[in-house]
Design a protein around this nucleic acid. Structure first.
Length: 276
DNA sequence: AATGCTGTCAACCGCCCGGGA
DNA sequence: ATCCCGGGCGGTTGACAGCAT
């Protein structure tokens, strides 16, 4: 008994999306909201599979997406999260506002994996690589002790901890509040370090996402240069109000490539000041 | 200048899960 | 309890750009 295909394969277009298709999809979702994805292509006048529409929207057209490479802080966070969650990219992405699972997965496979291997760390287990498999004589300081390599990002961790403690409105949740899925230890025999690690405790909590530090992403800021790319959707008060940049044509892609206002930059800026 | 190689990333595919009938 | 369906997820692919030869 075969599974019914998600859409009629006949007449369904595949491959890269055109600006025209993007426009149709965006227009439709702005008008109708996200509804039954299977119905979207028909209603929006697209010869696409519903799945494809959903993917295009979530990975590319969503107004709250950040673009450009992950910065160092985000990269470290991905490594930390991967050590605990494994390849559950959607869970990892959920902790990085504005980033998609696809994006993180790609970045992991193309950048971080290599980086870790270079450092003598097995990207799968996050354990030191077997010496027989290691690349030529890694320097002692590059040798991690289990997950201690994360300490190389001590600055980041401290900063994020600081950021979290600065958010006086938030009651940080404990690891117990996590779903069993997320709180499980990634590698056998490894204790759940979250209990002792306020950073991870915070990151794995919903309070992380509710942290007012992220609010800038959704707060209208009209008192500075309108050409600031941060205004192009990221700081939108509402999707509708700020989608004109997207609907204006294809140019938005190029503009977004120069996007440099990352969440961590914001947090670090906001919370490091009194530290340095 | 032409060709081949490598890296990157958008998009697809197939499977799984949860909710509703 | 079972089946069906839609949505979501992770793995993989393929097109393209940039670099090396």
């Amino acid at each position: 008994m075969g599974r019914q295909p998600c859409c009629d394969k006949l007449g369904v277009k595949k491959g890269p999306w055109t600006a025209e298709e993007d426009k149709k999809l965006v227009n439709f979702i702005l008008t109708n909201g996200q509804c039954c994805w299977r119905a979207v292509p028909k209603l929006a006048g697209l010869r696409r599979c519903g799945k494809s529409c959903r993917l295009r929207w979530t990975n590319y057209l969503r107004p709250d997406l950040k673009r450009g490479l992950l910065n160092e802080a985000e990269e470290q966070l991905v490594i930390d999260l991967h050590a605990r969650l494994g390849n559950r990219w959607s869970k990892i992405a959920a902790r990085l506002p504005g980033r998609t699972d696809n994006e993180i997965k790609n970045h992991w496979n193309t950048h971080i994996k290599k980086k870790l291997i270079k450092m003598g760390i097995d990207p799968v287990t996050h354990e030191p690589l077997n010496t027989s498999q290691e690349l030529p004589s890694p320097r002692p300081q590059d040798q991690p002790q289990n997950l201690d390599f994360i300490n190389q990002s001590e600055t980041l961790d401290n900063n994020i901890c600081h950021a979290s403690s600065s958010s006086s409105d938030n009651n940080l949740t404990t690891p117990e509040s996590l779903s069993g899925d997320e709180s499980r230890s990634f590698s056998d025999g490894q204790t759940n370090a979250d209990e002792d690690d306020p950073l991870m405790s915070y990151i794995f909590s919903d309070a992380f996402l509710m942290d007012s530090s992220w609010e800038f992403l959704f707060t209208a800021t009209n008192d500075h240069e309108p050409e600031n790319v941060c205004d192009l959707g990221l700081s939108s008060p509402s999707v509708d109000d700020n989608f004109t940049w997207l609907l204006d044509g294809q140019g938005f892609v190029d503009e977004d490539l120069s996007l440099s206002c990352f969440a961590y930059d914001h947090i670090l800026t906001n919370h490091m000041g009194d530290k340095n």
